[in-house]
Design a protein around this nucleic acid. Structure first.
Lengths: 229, 229
DNA sequence: CTAGAATTATCTGGATACAGATTTGGCAAT
DNA sequence: ATTGCCAAATCTGTATCCAGATAATTCTAG
């Protein structure tokens, strides 16, 4: 409503954060065209901060910016999903190895609480809580670059949850693995915690991949393409 | 000479590429201030593409962009170097595992040629050739996101070579490890190639880390700070 | 002569304006 | 009726302009 007059040099980041959340939540399906003018109107600003925020999201892999054409929400394809999760499977254990010595009981309890919520939530909430669970345990690793890398990957990965129906067996096994991971963290057993985490990411990724391929073979949902809104 | 008038929407990327090369080559030491106006003059353009290119470099970790202040070349600190190489040590073997089945004899010969050059070059050339060697072997992995991630890390890592004198023992062991890696690739032995690569990155990183810490303890060279140029 | 405050200069961040590229719609020809 | 081409509308990319913030300089007071 009230316009921002403060030039804090962070407006682009803030806009990017909103757009990121919207795209991750699946509000704008893949191939949705994002016009600078429309976004400028929506965020009550000029096109300039919009352009910067789109560049940010492009580098994160959430949108594509073809030259002289409108930005489009990045497509969801199985190959990308596999690649993203392969990267998670090596990056997250690295972070966890350094995080475990710094993990407080308070943080572990916090992760446990998130997992409690996750186990009785629908698929949309689950996707966000799943990411929050992972980031909570990895947070104390004291490696900013690694953490932001992992955060990006998790954002990308999270988008795919909206495309496949809840796989009960997926959730069930995922929950079990999260509980095992919590136990290893509580015991400060870095080696087994890292192994569990890697296995968990690979197993979850494989289940999701199967679901995605199945869906791809039988494309049920009508494509919701077109302009923004 | 004649400037580009075509608006191909890639000027920012091109400027970023030049600045990236300059910073990596150590032409602009850490803490060098990069003024938008000066850069605009230098590249014969307005400040707008400059701003975008600086944003690109910021996200890559090569420059810092404090709010309402001039961009500065990112500092070189040991912690960052360690973090960057930890990330390389898990990301590159992942890429190599997928690259090996796709590696042609031609590519291996190309990597061999790069290594031949590297073994009789000074430290500045060595840094660039070292990166080229790694990227050549990882190129065919068919994972664009992973490759650009690794390329970024290698750019960041390469900067540190200019800060320490040539460590003869570093080069010697590095060369030996590169040759072993080539042999494993030629044999298409993915498992041992990945192991060699990981060990190589970790060993090289450790040697460099020691050199950096030694230098940090005895800061000999006078700081070359100040404005651009 | 030094320290602090106010004023000036400089630089960045955002808005507006303009030029080029792409796409869309209509018109004509087959 | 369909296809190819031309023109108008739309949208992106760059330049210029203005406002706010930071840094530098000067002036004044002790």
């Amino acid at each position: 409503m009230t316009r921002k007059i403060i030039r804090d040099g962070q407006t682009a980041e803030e806009i990017a954060a909103v757009l990121r959340a919207v795209i991750i939540a699946g509000k704008h399906p893949p191939e949705t065209m994002l016009f600078q003018e429309e976004l400028a109107e929506r965020f009550q600003t000029s096109r300039m901060p919009i352009r910067e925020s789109l560049k940010i999201l492009e580098r994160e892999g959430l949108v594509l910016l073809p030259a002289n054409r409108s930005a489009v929400v990045a497509p969801l394809d199985v190959e990308s999903f596999v690649e993203i999760n392969e990267m998670r499977a090596v990056a997250e254990p690295l972070a966890l190895r350094h995080a475990i010595p710094e993990l407080t009981n308070r943080l572990i309890a916090q992760a446990e609480a998130i997992q409690d919520d996750a186990e009785q939530s629908d698929i949309v909430e689950f996707a966000a809580l799943n990411r929050a669970f992972h980031m909570t345990l990895l947070g104390p690793c004291a490696r900013p670059r690694l953490l932001s890398h992992i955060a990006s990957l998790n954002h990308l990965s999270q988008r795919y949850f909206h495309t496949v129906a809840v796989e009960l067996e997926y959730s069930a096994s995922s929950h079990k693995e999260h509980r095992a991971l919590l136990a290893a963290c509580a015991a400060r057993d870095a080696a087994s915690a890292c192994a569990i985490l890697q296995d968990h990411i690979e197993a979850a990724s494989r289940l999701m991949e199967d679901a995605l391929r199945a869906k791809e073979a039988a494309p049920s949902s009508a494509r919701t393409e077109g302009r923004l809104q």
